[in-house]
Each structure stands twice: as C-alpha cells, then as structure tokens.
C-alpha cells in the first residue's frame, strides 16, 4: 500500500512503520493529508470506510502537534493509523468533515484541546471547555495541569459564564432568527 501511495502522492508520504507487531502506521505531509485520506476511503482495494478517531499528540520534546487518524475497513478488516506532524508555527490541517461526518466533533475537540486549526471545518469552536475559557489549549505540554490562573480567578471566571448564552440577542441573530420578546 505504501508503494501504491508513493506512486500517486510522491513525497507527501513521509514514511511508514509497524507498531506493536501488527499496527500499520503511515506518516504523511499535512499539505496532502486530505487527498490521501480520501484516496484511502474511496479506493476499492482498501476502502477504509470507518473513521474511528481523530486525535492529536503533543510530544513536548518536538515542538508542534501530531494529528492522528485511526481508520478501519469494515470489508477488508484492516486497521490503519495516519500521522501528520504539524510545526508549532503552523498548526493547520485540512478538515475531513465532508468525507466522514463524525470528524466534525472529533476535530472540534482537537481544536479545543490542542489549538489545531482545521481549515474548511464548518463549525470550529470550543466543544468541551466553556466558551469564555481564556487559559489556552489544555492538552498542550506547555499547559500546567491545574491551569494557568489561580483557583480564585478560575472560579470567578466560571461564575461569570452566561448560561443563557444561546439566548443572547446577538447569538440568535447569528442563527438568522430575531427574538420577539424575552420571556424573563
């Protein structure tokens, strides 16, 4: 498979290895990651049709983030891991939401926790952390376990959250609907 891919995508295939005896890993360039994933999904010889996971790893020793895709082919019963290293100054990769709809939330989570920008994602915003969270992206190695602010400040910011966020007039305006009257 690596040869096939190298023949088509050339230098975008950085390398491959086998982990734990039977887990195939493929390293690809971020610039062409989407095309490669699309090929793997649509090529009938492989048809990796189930995207199991999109996640990222911050090794700490190497600056930057590695985005990891786990693929599974239901027909051929094969597992494949795609890794894509992003340099610290360019945490950008193209989205795969249009290929697999489940990538939507998974990519949002990676954005939330690692700060990776998925170019072309329809709705890239925080998913797990509160909207007003301002301490950064927690799963980066530079982020301390207990957060950057003191507990006092964290509690204060937390209680300042507007839990009726969605009902703010500007929010409703963004949805294309105008509030008629505030029930409160």
């Amino acid at each position: 498979m690596t040869e096939q891919l190298t023949a088509i995508f050339g230098s975008a295939i950085v390398g491959s290895e086998v982990q734990c005896g039977d887990q195939e890993v493929l390293f690809v360039e971020p610039a062409q990651s989407r095309e490669i994933l699309e090929w793997l999904k649509d090529n009938e010889e492989h048809s990796y049709d189930l995207l199991l996971d999109v996640t990222a790893v911050d090794y700490g020793s190497v600056p930057g983030v590695q985005v990891v895709y786990q693929l599974w082919s239901i027909i051929h019963k094969k597992l494949l891991r795609i890794k894509c290293s992003l340099p610290e100054n360019r945490l950008k990769i193209r989205t795969v939401v249009d290929l697999w709809s489940c990538a939507n939330w998974l990519e949002r989570e990676v954005f939330d926790l690692f700060g990776v920008d998925f170019v072309g994602h329809p709705d890239l915003r925080r998913i797990l952390m509160p909207k007003n969270y301002s301490e950064g992206h927690p799963l980066r190695k530079t982020f301390p376990l207990r957060g950057k602010f003191s507990r006092e400040k964290q509690t204060k910011i937390a209680l300042e959250q507007d839990y009726e966020d969605y009902y703010r007039p500007e929010q409703l305006g963004a949805l294309g609907i105008e509030p008629v009257n505030d029930a409160d």
């Binding site: 839990y163 009726e164 969605y166 009902y167 409703l172 294309g176 609907i177 105008e178 509030p179 008629v180 009257n181 505030d182 029930a183 409160d184």
Partner: peptide
C-alpha cells in the same frame, strides 16, 4: 428554570411561531 426556558422567535415571519427550547 435553569434548564428550560422558552423565547418566542420568528424567522422574519411573525406567523411561524418557532420556539427555542433549552433542555
């Protein structure tokens, strides 16, 4: 109260009567 609240909305059409409900 903390969990359910309704606001009457309309998408420019006053007769549509769509509601936004929070669960």
């Amino acid at each position: 109260m903390p969990t359910k609240k309704t606001i009457e909305l309309s998408r420019g059409d006053p007769d549509s009567g769509n509601m936004l409900v929070n669960i």
